[in-house]
Amino acid sequence: MELKYKGKTKDVYSLGGNEVLLKFKDDVTGENGVFDPGANSVGLTIEGVGRSGLRMTKHFFELLKTKEVPSHYVSADLDDVSMVVREAVPFGKGLEVICRFRAVGSFYRRYGAYLEQGQRLNSLVEITIKDDERGDPTISKDTLSELNVLTEAEYEALKQLTKTICGYIKEELATKGLELYDIKLEFGRDKETNDIILIDEISGGNMRVYKGDQYIEPLVLEKEFFKA
């Protein structure tokens, strides 16, 4: 296999035929040795975190496949800690799409003058651009269109797709007594068909989940979700 890209938490290998292999690593983002899924640099290595993330990712992508949600997912190998996916082209230099069901985290810090912490939100969608140097700023529909990253029609399609996907994930977590507060997704265009598809991973590091009033740490979430 040809190494295409070394990422912070995954390495990407070319398989040919419009497919690539994602090799999950035990490196996690954080600062000063403390795990932080929102950080922009690798902070530490935790044994087993790669497999944990892949196990949840496999579960949710296979769930979404039954719902006919377009994604890059082909297959996953938990023993090899790897996933085969269709190759995708990012929007611009990369976008992150956040769906919020509760006012917490950075959303509450920005808008706390207008709502209470933990207040319910109606599947509110925000988009940020991937830019470590500028702190991954949020970006509006008009700006995305002006910069030729997304057309207005593509923005609306992406927003609706995000709401649909996150609704399925929220419902699935609820079957285990878990509540999804917010989640970060990534999308791209299928390199072969140019269709908008869900990419990257769906794991504890991408979501904020509670059980009652208790926040469930990303590394604990997999065990809580899959326990009998």
Rank of each mutant, 00 (worst) to 15 (best):
M1E: 11
E2K: 14
L3Q: 08
Y5M: 11
K8C: 00
T9F: 09
Y13W: 04
S14P: 01
L15C: 06
G17L: 07
V20D: 03
L21K: 11
L22G: 01
F24A: 04
K25V: 08
V28G: 10
T29H: 13
G30L: 09
N32V: 07
N32L: 11
G33T: 02
P37N: 13
G38C: 07
N40L: 01
I46H: 00
G48I: 06
R51S: 12
S52L: 10
G53W: 08
L54K: 00
L54S: 03
L54R: 01
M56I: 14
T57H: 04
T57W: 08
H59Q: 14
H59V: 10
H59I: 12
F60D: 03
E62M: 12
L63P: 01
L63Y: 07
K65L: 10
K65T: 06
K67C: 07
E68V: 10
V69A: 02
A76E: 08
V81Y: 04
V81S: 15
S82G: 04
V84P: 05
G92L: 13
R100D: 01
R100I: 00
V104R: 09
G105D: 00
G105R: 06
Y108D: 07
R109Y: 10
A113L: 10
Y114S: 12
E116L: 00
Q117D: 00
G118N: 10
S123Y: 06
L124I: 00
E126G: 00
T128Y: 09
D131M: 09
D132M: 12
P137D: 05
P137K: 04
I139S: 03
L144A: 02
L144I: 02
E146F: 14
L150T: 01
E152V: 05
A153F: 03
A157F: 11
K159Y: 03
Q160G: 08
Q160K: 08
Q160A: 05
T164M: 10
I165K: 12
C166S: 09
C166T: 11
C166Q: 09
G167R: 05
G167W: 15
G167E: 13
Y168I: 14
Y168V: 03
Y168E: 11
Y168D: 06
E172F: 09
E172W: 07
L173G: 04
A174C: 04
T175I: 00
T175G: 02
L178V: 05
Y181V: 05
E186M: 12
E186Y: 14
K191R: 12
E192C: 00
E192K: 15
T193M: 02
N194T: 12
N194R: 15
I197P: 05
L198W: 07
I199L: 03
I199A: 00
I199C: 07
I199D: 03
D200V: 13
D200Y: 13
E201F: 08
G204D: 04
R208G: 13
K211Q: 15
K211G: 12
Q214T: 14
Y215A: 14
I216Q: 14
I216F: 11
L219C: 01
K223C: 03
K223P: 01
F225N: 04
F225S: 05
F226Y: 11
F226D: 13
A228F: 11
